[in-house]
Design a protein around this nucleic acid. Structure first.
Length: 335
DNA sequence: CTAATTTGACCTGC
DNA sequence: GCAGGTCAAATTAG
């Protein structure tokens, strides 16, 4: 997979370039009087984030000489299960009944040769922002299980496009029993489908959750997306993750020496303009190389969240709000 | 009505 | 045998 190395390098360069551009922007903002403190702060966060990402990539590249590593930031590489075939024989993944017979012939049905990695997501209690844990793909819950020794049940999700596009990606969401605000998301398999921003862009809480407004500033701190040495699609995911990355905080979860970026997800409406600006800036910057610090105000939050840069990504636009109820139930259903 | 979630049962690996 | 993972019917939500 030398392609991934090239991509990694490109990404790294892109990241550093971006950081430089952002620094220029910051410099500009510092020199103009009308620049708001928020805007400056945002830029600082973005710069830091950019460097975090670059460092993460460097670490990743350094570690991945040989076989692929999925470790990024606090994302934990779970490589106990043969990382050898990343894209090989996707058919061997778990599948529906019809392919079951074939799998029986093979002897093993699942859990083999599937890339896995873990991401930890911290959610402020009561914020109800679990919906934003969405990662650019539509997930459909297919099971929940009480795990021995774990306080909270584990939720099992698979890609909504499994039937349509045969995407075999799955994820498991496990709430930490020590810190219930932390969700450990274990991804398995890679998406072969096109990501649906729709679900990803679902504005937190807007419609599907009747949870009362919380005057605390709710926020989710997310690990930096893994920059696994994997192809373009991950880059899209990364970009998409930035789109929900509303504010970067330089607060570490518990890995002081790991460089990673954390995001703050304010859900209050007055911060949305800033959020959109961040999103569009990141995308423009990454895909077009053009950064506009100006804040844009979406006409209809949610549906037009990505108007503009959205077309770069793909055109599949389903937008079910998938994760929110599931995760809520994950957290709320006590064993 | 359609699609997503829930949940108990079943299957597989250790 | 046990625990984790998946299936699918039933239920719920939009």
């Amino acid at each position: 997979m030398e392609n991934s190395a090239d991509w990694e390098k490109m990404n790294l360069i892109n990241e550093l370039t971006q950081g430089r551009e952002l620094a220029k922007q910051l410099q500009f903002h510092l020199n103009v009087s009308y620049s708001s403190h928020e805007a400056r702060e945002l830029l600082v966060h973005k710069i830091l984030n950019s460097y975090d990402k670059a460092l993460s990539m460097l670490k990743c590249v350094g570690a991945s000489s040989g076989e692929p590593q999925l470790t990024i930031g606090t994302a934990i590489a779970v490589s106990s299960e043969s990382p050898r075939s990343f894209i090989g024989s996707p058919h061997s993944e778990d599948s529906d009944r019809d392919s079951k017979d074939q799998e029986h012939k093979d002897g093993s049905r699942k859990r083999k040769c599937v890339p896995r990695w873990t991401k930890q997501v911290q959610v402020c209690p009561g914020s109800g922002l679990e919906g934003t844990l969405d990662d650019g793909h539509s997930w459909r819950k297919y099971g929940q299980k009480d795990i021995l020794g774990a306080k909270y049940p584990r939720g099992y999700y698979r890609c909504s496009h499994r039937n349509v596009q045969g995407c075999l990606a799955t994820k498991q969401v496990q709430r930490s029993d020590e810190d219930p605000t932390i969700f450990e998301i274990n991804y398995r398999g890679r998406h072969t489908c096109t990501p649906t921003q729709g679900s990803y862009l679902t504005p937190p809480q807007s419609s599907s959750s009747p949870s009362p407004p919380d005057n605390r500033e709710p926020r989710i701190i997310v690990d930096s997306e893994q920059f696994a040495p994997l192809p373009q699609q991950n880059q899209q995911e990364i970009l998409l993750n930035f789109q929900t990355g509303l504010k970067v905080v330089t607060e570490n979860l518990n890995t002081p020496d790991q460089s990673f970026s954390s995001f703050l997800f304010p859900s209050t409406s007055n911060t949305k303009a800033e959020n959109y600006a961040f999103s569009s800036a990141m995308i423009d910057n990454s895909l077009v190389g053009n950064y506009s610090p100006s804040f844009m105000s979406p006409a209809t939050p949610g549906s037009n969240y990505f108007s503009g840069s959205q077309t770069h990504m793909n055109s599949v636009g389903r937008s079910p709000n998938l994760s929110l109820p599931s995760l809520n139930s994950l957290g709320e259903s006590q064993p």
